[in-house]
């Protein structure tokens, strides 16, 4: 038993990544500082604001509230993976088309949470969108356009799925 650095390895955006980290290293710091994936933001740092949301093994997760050491072998997806092939994800398109942001700081978390929400509920009402984003704060208070963006993306994603 030691508080020394430990070797952590996980799959991030489809690529095996590893680093030597302290046990107290939060997932968000592993992503940002060890891997240079700075699209995942640190907002409140008290598990409330959702700027740090990523997908961990299919579960929408606040990466400021798990330690990297817990995620040995996990499969993590961050905002950087969404447009990896140069084409924006429909949710990113939605935020663009509906101007679902002002300063943009909360946007990565909003997008990651919204994609997770649509996996469970592909056709949410506006109320369901607001409930689904209860763990994401926008301090510019741009919520109305965020709801519009998610609705826009949901319609696009339903259309794509029905065309498949």
């Amino acid at each position: 038993m030691t508080t020394d650095h430990i070797h952590v390895a996980m799959t991030v955006n489809g690529v095996e990544r590893s680093a030597e980290v302290e046990p107290r290293t939060l997932l968000v710091h592993f992503l940002r500082d060890s891997l240079g994936l700075t699209g995942t933001h640190v907002g409140c740092d008290t598990s409330q604001c959702g700027a740090c949301v990523v997908d961990v093994d299919g579960v929408s997760t606040k990466s400021c509230t798990m330690f990297a050491a817990q995620l040995q072998g996990a499969n993590v997806t961050t905002i950087e993976a969404l447009a990896a092939d140069g084409t924006l994800h429909p949710m990113q398109e939605g935020f663009w088309a509906e101007h679902g942001l002002q300063c943009g700081f909360c946007t990565p978390g909003m997008i990651m949470s919204s994609i997770a929400m649509l996996k469970e509920n592909p056709d949410p009402t506006d109320d369901e969108i607001r409930e689904g984003l209860e763990g994401n704060f926008c301090r510019c208070t741009g919520y109305q356009n965020i709801v519009n963006a998610v609705r826009h993306a949901a319609a696009e994603m339903r259309e794509q799925n029905s065309a498949d």
């Binding site: 598990s47 959702g50 949301v53 929408s60 997760t61 606040k62 798990m66 949470s113 209860e134 763990g135």
Partner: peptide
């Protein structure tokens, strides 16, 4: 309780 991420963990 909390929010969707909190309830999942």
């Amino acid at each position: 309780v909390g929010d969707r991420q909190v309830r999942a963990r």
